[in-house]
């Protein structure tokens, strides 16, 4: 299992060049049963990443390009009248998949966004009084473009809480960009990517993550960290208990990826910026430029030992 995960990571690194840390976070997020928000400018490989993830983990995937006229039914599905049977029949929407890439999620109307977010949270869809369970695993990779503000509806903080992690890809460094330019189209490469796991094994690994040992000492540290986010004067809204659960799950996932049987403070610290940055609501929006940097500063202020 450990070897499969390592190989999956290696394969992803061949596709997405120079971003090992982000890739690891993405996998951790998947294994922690969370959903992922990738925030970045277009053209850095968000779609390629989602596609590669689906391939490597052997998951079925769908892609929905969010636009301002996208309706909830376009995502969850719609009931149509079947003349032959004289009955309404539910046509499942693209959400019925294992990995859903919701591209540029901030372009859709809040109504459509909330339909997606509800499906993410509930892992099921209700239509016409019927409940349809989504497949397992169910992993949403949503992207949004922070620089483009015109005609978009930025996700409110309460909705951001539904994403376990927010990851920024960023531009590749010079060496990797050179290699990218040299090797040509990534999509061709994608076709040849082997599947290292399948949906059943992904579910098994997700179960394993829950069993990674968490010592009392680590709970202490985690709680100190959560308290620190709530007690700071420059934070309007600290981390919620749900965020705390997510942080723990993500840290467990990270520890599993590192081949450890117990969570260390380092694991918490590794995932903390990605888990916390988009949830921390600061008093002065203009204060610090980079929310990730702010999260790291918070980490430095909390001692590992009581």
């Amino acid at each position: 299992m450990q070897r499969d995960l390592a190989e999956a990571l290696a394969t992803l690194e061949r596709v997405i060049l120079g971003k090992p840390r982000q890739l690891r976070l993405c996998i951790a997020c998947l294994l922690a049963r969370g959903h992922l928000l990738i925030e970045d400018v277009p053209g850095v490989g968000k779609t390629t990443l989602a596609h590669a993830l689906a391939r490597v983990f052997g998951l079925g995937w769908n892609r929905v390009q969010f636009t301002s006229d996208l309706l909830p039914a376009d995502i969850v599905g719609v009931s149509v009248f079947d003349r032959a049977t004289q009955q309404f029949e539910f046509r499942k929407g693209p959400v019925f998949t294992q990995l859903l890439l919701a591209d540029e999620v901030n372009r859709a109307s809040p109504r459509t966004q909330s339909a997606l977010l509800e499906a993410m949270e509930e892992r099921q869809v209700s239509a016409d009084g019927q409940t349809y369970v989504l497949p397992e695993p169910f992993f949403v990779v949503a992207t949004q473009n922070p620089k483009e503000q015109l005609g978009t509806f930025a996700l409110p903080e309460s909705q951001l809480d539904r994403f376990l992690m927010r990851v920024e890809l960023g531009y590749p460094d010079a060496a990797h960009e050179r290699e990218l330019l040299r090797s040509g189209e990534r999509r061709d490469l994608l076709e040849r990517v082997p599947a290292h796991l399948d949906s059943v094994r992904v579910c098994q690994v997700q179960q394993l993550v829950r069993r990674v040992h968490v010592a009392d000492a680590l709970f202490d540290y985690l709680q100190r960290l959560l308290r620190a986010t709530r007690e700071r004067a420059d934070v309007k809204l600290g981390l919620s208990p749900r965020a705390g659960q997510g942080l723990l799950r993500a840290a467990q996932s990270w520890a599993l990826l590192a081949g450890r049987e117990a969570v260390l403070p380092e694991d918490v610290q590794a995932v903390f910026p990605s888990v916390a940055a988009h949830r921390l609501l600061r008093r002065d929006p203009a204060a610090a430029a980079d929310p990730g940097e702010f999260a790291r500063e918070l980490l430095r202020a909390v001692p590992v030992d009581a």
Partner: peptide, 9 residues
């Protein structure tokens, strides 16, 4: 060691 530094780091 720095206060916020874990043992492995």
């Amino acid at each position: 060691r720095e206060a916020a530094e874990g043992p492995v780091d």
